[in-house]
Amino acid sequence: MIEVRNLSKHYGSHRAVNNISFTVNEGEIVGFLGPNGAGKTTTLRIVTCYMPATSGSVTIAGHDVLTESMQVRAVVGYLPESVPLYPEMRVREYLQFRGRLHGMDRANRAAAIDRVVERCWLRDVIDRPIGQLSKGYRQRVGLADSLLHNPKVLVLDEPTIGLDPAQIRATRSLIRELAQEHTVILSSHILPEVEATCQRLIIIHEGRLVASGTPDELRQRMTTESNLIAELKGPESDIGASVRKLAGVADVRTTLQDGWTRVSVAAQRDLREDIFRLAIEKHWPLRELRRDIATLEDFFVKVVTGTREQHDGRDEAAAER
């Protein structure tokens, strides 16, 4: 449905988006994740025909965003990050206006407005000026607007930013519902947000695509190297030395806490049984033993800080030269 190939966008010498490629299939709901300033909004603006790319191509439903811009706009519903609306207009007037821009006749407009007002729970505020609405309602008006022409593709830029927790939950479930009829691409810098709603994640950082896959796939990539925590009572140095001897151990750190030794082990495999046997063998009492399952958060942080370290290294190397 959406095909992005070698997309780059430069603002002067600054590279906002650097050679990104990805595909979104029909009916998929894809999360576009990255820290602030990663290039998410820029990419979405290119996808929605707001501005052209420096190089590369984007195709939506078979139409190129550059050469068949109007056809693309007809099949894409876009909710910009700032949710721009006209405060002096009433909700109904605004939706009427947007419907006209999409070339709907009077009957179609009435039906479409009825549909999106129902969907986005706007019935109570339909005759109120937009300027008087709360942030949550405005967000819904924006969403209603992007749904008005029943687009094949929905592009939502930070759809839950600035909402309260209850509204965030409601918006998420609405987006999941919408994904049954539309292909959705949504951006966020908050991981639980996309983890909760999306089937697939695309993580970008500093304009580069650093990882993509389902949440499970990404989590798996992380858990290959897991972290194990154990608390034993015994001489700290002995415990450290014995644990280090176990097969598959990469790194061991010990700390003394009110008479107990806390061991943190990085290992390739699950060492819980080995530690248990070790404790019995040496008669060290054991009061805690657990394996930390890596969260997606860890992965996100690792990916993002990892590339930053790489960058710093490269910059330093360049500076030395």
């Binding site: 603006r45 876009y78 721009p84 947007r98």
Partner: peptide, 14 residues
């Protein structure tokens, strides 16, 4: 100023 140019120029309007 209000950013509505973004929603206008992503609708089928030249």
């Amino acid at each position: 100023r209000s950013g509505t140019i973004e929603s206008l120029m992503t609708a089928p309007v030249s």
